[in-house]
Design a binder for these strands. Sequence first.
DNA 1: TTACTATATGAGTATATTGTAACATAATCA
DNA 2: TGATTATGTTACAATATACTCATATAGTAA
Lengths: 108, 108
Amino acid sequence: MSEQARQLCELKAEIFAAAGHPIRMAIIEFLRDGEKCVCQIAAYIGAERSNVSRHLAVMLQAGLVKHEKQGLKMIYSLTTPCILGFLECVTSVLRQRAEETRAVLENL
Amino acid sequence: MSEQARQLCELKAEIFAAAGHPIRMAIIEFLRDGEKCVCQIAAYIGAERSNVSRHLAVMLQAGLVKHEKQGLKMIYSLTTPCILGFLECVTSVLRQRAEETRAVLENL
DNA sequence: TTACTATATGAGTATATTGTAACATAATCA
DNA sequence: TGATTATGTTACAATATACTCATATAGTAA
């Protein structure tokens, strides 16, 4: 495995990890509706603003979201629409798992 | 935010997190070629077998891979092809980031 | 048995997450 | 103007989780 491939894996893993937390996943889902400020996100999720702000910083660093200041508020939005394609895939994985589980249960 | 939505976010996040580690990302890339045993994966990545085995267990739990015993060896393979669609999206995110960085540097 | 393969476990280290509080900035109001 | 409020980020400390390595265990094949 080449050093370059290793570094590429680190970058890709960083992006996945940036979505790999319940709160951050909830943020992504919430931002599907459109751009939101930190306080809206925190209210929706029911978490501390400081905590949400830190999670957003992780996502910003990974390139999952972008932000823009509007007066008092910092508005966050998703960067790339293909992130939503991610989610459909994940949902299909979950659906598949659910069906497998059901199949197992039916054979009891 | 409903309790059900919260649980769904946890499940989705678990899947992303299962891909959100350099070694696990390297495993996914390696398994694109087809099914492999633990020893092949460990050799390719250059990590301890026990460590690779543990990471595979994480991916198994999340449903990213499946495994099947063949004689001495445990053969792992990717479960859903759409995971590879993930990767193209991630690559596009990285490409976009790279171009933004280049644009910034050109304006120095 | 012996060699090989994979997983489980324990210990130590490192990283992530969280709440609280302090701070910075921008808008609002007296 | 100065004081106050709203919003977001950051620092600190505590806790929890993840990661890695070394070793032990278990199963399989020759």
